[in-house]
């Protein structure tokens, strides 16, 4: 068993190469027990590749990876029983019914119950938890996209995992389902001390859910910290706009207050329509991605 506040995910110098193409360069990060970590990045950044390596579905080219103390490339069934996996899109077992399938999958986890973690999760309780009670008797192929996604999350949870991998979990959710899902993940992290690694390209989601955000771009981690830390890190990205002599100017600056004072000192009344936009996390994220792309070129 992992001790509380122990390191559950440990990735060091991870590289992935297909032929001569590197899709991950030197990815390094850690997650502690009970932490919710968001892997944030644009499409093609390497998020899914990273998570598939951690799930043990893909063999890395180089680097050290440890999940719950084991190398995913050689994880045994006991190790697998402690993981929950939600992939980007599932459409398997279309003829099975919701409750029937969850109850069946649960039986695989029963032998892995340990003191403190009763496995599996009761199917009816789990179905209620993800809001599918009225669809419990439906065949999987008749579920709507959002319902199917909620079932996928329930399947990921049925074994009461110690580590939960969520690849783009809320794709296709309406706002209500999204907010319910966020509450579920927070509950998990708070109450059960499940470590969660989720990928998303939705910054808002990362900010709401994650204790820590890793920004992945072009196969590199370009930032790692809490939402507040990331926003602070790029204080330089306040945006100042103004008009002078009929021309529009835009300037990015680390210190917008000083910049504005100097602007007025120099041009006085010529400066019009002044706007100052403080760095938001969204701008921070876009700036990070842009910065990383420039470095890559």
């Amino acid at each position: 068993m992992t001790k509380s506040n122990g390191i559950v995910l440990d990735v060091d110098g991870l590289r992935m190469r297909y032929g001569s193409l590197d899709v991950l360069h030197d990815v390094t990060f850690q997650a502690r027990h009970g932490e919710v970590l968001a892997l944030l990045g644009p499409n093609g950044a390497g998020k899914t590749t990273t998570i598939e390596i951690l799930e043990g579905f893909r063999v890395r080219s180089q680097g050290r990876v440890s999940v719950l103390g084991a190398d995913p490339a050689h994880g045994d069934e006991q190790w697998r029983a402690r993981l929950g996996i939600v992939l980007q899109s599932w459409r398997d077992h279309g003829k099975w019914r919701v409750r029937e399938f969850l109850a069946h999958l649960g039986t695989y986890y029963a032998p892995y119950a340990v003191p403190g973690i009763s496995r599996p999760w009761d199917p009816d309780e789990l179905i209620e938890r993800v809001g599918l009670t009225e669809h419990a008797g439906k065949k999987l192929k008749t579920l709507s996209g959002g319902q199917r996604r909620r079932l996928d999350v329930a399947i990921g949870l049925v074994g009461r995992p110690e580590v939960l991998f969520l690849d783009e979990p809320t794709t296709g959710f309406d706002p209500q389902a999204r907010s319910d899902f966020h509450a579920l993940v927070r509950d998990l992290a708070d109450a059960r001390e499940t470590t969660v690694l989720l990928t998303t390209h939705d910054l808002d989601e990362a900010e709401k859910l994650a204790d820590r955000i890793l920004v992945l771009n072009g196969g590199r981690i370009v930032a790692d910290g809490t939402a507040a830390e990331l926003a602070r890190r790029i204080v330089g990205e306040d945006e100042v706009r103004w008009v002078r002599d009929g021309r529009r100017y835009v300037e990015r600056t680390p210190d917008s207050t000083t910049f504005a004072r100097e602007l007025f000192a120099r041009y006085g009344d010529d400066v019009r329509e002044l706007e100052v936009h403080r760095a938001s996390l969204e701008q921070t994220y876009l700036a990070l991605v842009r910065e990383a792309e420039e470095v890559a070129r």
């Binding site: 799930e55 069934e77 697998r80 029983a81 992939l87 459409r91 398997d92 986890y109």
Partner: peptide, 13 residues
């Protein structure tokens, strides 16, 4: 359709 992958993701699946 991913049924096999599901089996792979499940212990002794």
């Amino acid at each position: 359709d991913g049924t096999l992958l599901r089996a792979k993701a499940t212990p002794h699946g």
